[in-house]
Design a protein around this nucleic acid. Structure first.
Length: 155
DNA sequence: GCCAACGTTGGC
DNA sequence: GCCAACGTTGGC
């Protein structure tokens, strides 16, 4: 089992939106970065745990946890000319972009702020605090997952 | 809205 | 295959 962090802009899709979805489940689509795509296609597996991270907003940080309920499959939005994520070069027989389905698991009483995460001495490896922090899908190692989720539940 | 830190595109 | 120009991300 692996651990991940998925970024989302809460103005577009927040953890509360996930809670309000049917089955509290949502296809995580619109990822248009090759490195992130490779994670979704090759490594994110059913049963993996995911931090839901709110970016580009007032309260930047980790908002809660979701579980992967379906591993990587073609992101339909790449074929939809009406979608903001439409990719005219995408080929149905050889999809370029992938998505996974995630299901809500836990919402923290408070968002664990990025500022706090950066100040935690044991958190040195997560992509958020390193260079190249712009990746929208990133792995989290088990140790840091535990440290971060414990910290988020303490407040 | 600014701007640093990326990633992508395309001419050569 | 290089790299300048351009576009995007995301914290502040």
């Amino acid at each position: 089992m692996n651990y991940w962090l998925f970024k989302t802009e809460p103005d577009t899709f927040s953890i509360d939106d996930l809670i309000n979805r049917p089955e509290q489940t949502e296809p995580w689509e619109g990822v248009r970065n090759y490195q992130a795509r490779n994670f979704l296609r090759d490594e994110v597996a059913e049963g993996d745990h995911v931090f839901i991270y709110h970016s580009s907003c007032k309260l930047v940080g980790i908002a809660g946890i979701a579980t992967v309920v379906r591993a990587g499959y073609a992101d339909e939005s790449q074929f939809d000319p009406d979608s903001a994520y439409y990719d005219p070069k995408a080929d149905r027989d050889d999809p370029r972009w992938f998505r996974v389905d995630v299901k809500f698991k836990e919402k923290f009483a408070r968002v664990l702020p990025l500022k706090t995460i950066k100040q935690m001495p044991d958190i040195t490896n997560i992509g958020l605090v390193k260079k190249g922090h712009r990746l929208s899908i990133m792995p989290v190692d088990q140790q840091e997952w535990k440290t971060l989720s414990d910290a988020a539940r303490q407040t």
